[in-house]
Simulated assay, not measured.
Amino acid sequence: MTGTYCVHCGEPLAGSEHPRCHTPRTALEPPRFCAQCARRMVVQVTPTGWEARCSRHGACTSEGTG
């Protein structure tokens, strides 16, 4: 997922390195913030994956669809 905002902390990507957001641990976690608008997303984690939904930009899943 690419965009203007960090999906782990919601801060703008431009001009910041986000060292705490880019660790091996966070690579396995679902996004918590929308990459397009930085809104907090509704995240549902299941045994087989996850789905994250932004009220404005829709859903994304661990399978990469959406």
Rank of each mutant, 00 (worst) to 15 (best):
P24K: 08
A27E: 13
P24R: 11
E29I: 01
T48V: 13
C9A: 04
G66R: 04
Q44S: 10
P19R: 09
R40H: 04
T48R: 15
A38K: 01
V7E: 15
G58R: 02
Y5T: 11
Q36S: 07
T2M: 03
C6A: 02
G3K: 00
G49R: 06
M1L: 14
S16T: 03
A59L: 07
H8A: 15
A27V: 10
T65C: 08
E11V: 08
A35K: 00
H57G: 05
G49F: 06
S16G: 07
H22E: 08
T26A: 04
C54R: 08
M1E: 15
T26P: 01
P47F: 09
A35E: 00
C34T: 09
C60T: 06
P24Y: 12
P24A: 10
P24S: 10
T4K: 15
R20E: 14
P24L: 13
A38S: 12
P31G: 14
P19C: 10
E29V: 00
H8C: 15
G58A: 03
A27P: 01
L28G: 01
T26D: 09
H57S: 01
L13I: 06
Q36I: 12
R20Y: 12
G10T: 03
P30C: 08
M41F: 13
P30L: 07
H8F: 15
R20C: 04
G64Q: 11
G49A: 08
T61V: 06
W50S: 07
R53F: 01
A14F: 12
A14W: 05
V42I: 04
S16W: 05
V42P: 00
C34Y: 12
R25D: 10
G3D: 00
T46G: 06
A38F: 11
P12L: 14
R53M: 00
E63F: 13
G64D: 03
W50A: 12
R32A: 14
A35N: 02
E29R: 08
G3Q: 04
T26E: 07
P31H: 02
A59W: 07
V42Q: 00
P31S: 09
T26G: 05
T46V: 07
H57L: 03
G64R: 03
L28Y: 06
F33L: 02
M1D: 15
Y5D: 11
G64M: 01
P47A: 08
C37D: 03
S55F: 12
L13F: 06
E29C: 00
L13C: 06
H18V: 13
Y5V: 05
T48C: 08
C21R: 10
T26S: 04
Q36M: 13
T48P: 06
T4F: 15
C21Q: 05
S55E: 15
H8T: 15
C9W: 11
C60S: 07
C34S: 11
P31Y: 06
R56P: 06
P47V: 10
T4A: 15
G66H: 00
C37W: 05
A14R: 10
P19H: 09
G3A: 00
G66P: 08
T48N: 11
C34P: 12
C54S: 05
V45S: 05
V7S: 15
Q36K: 13
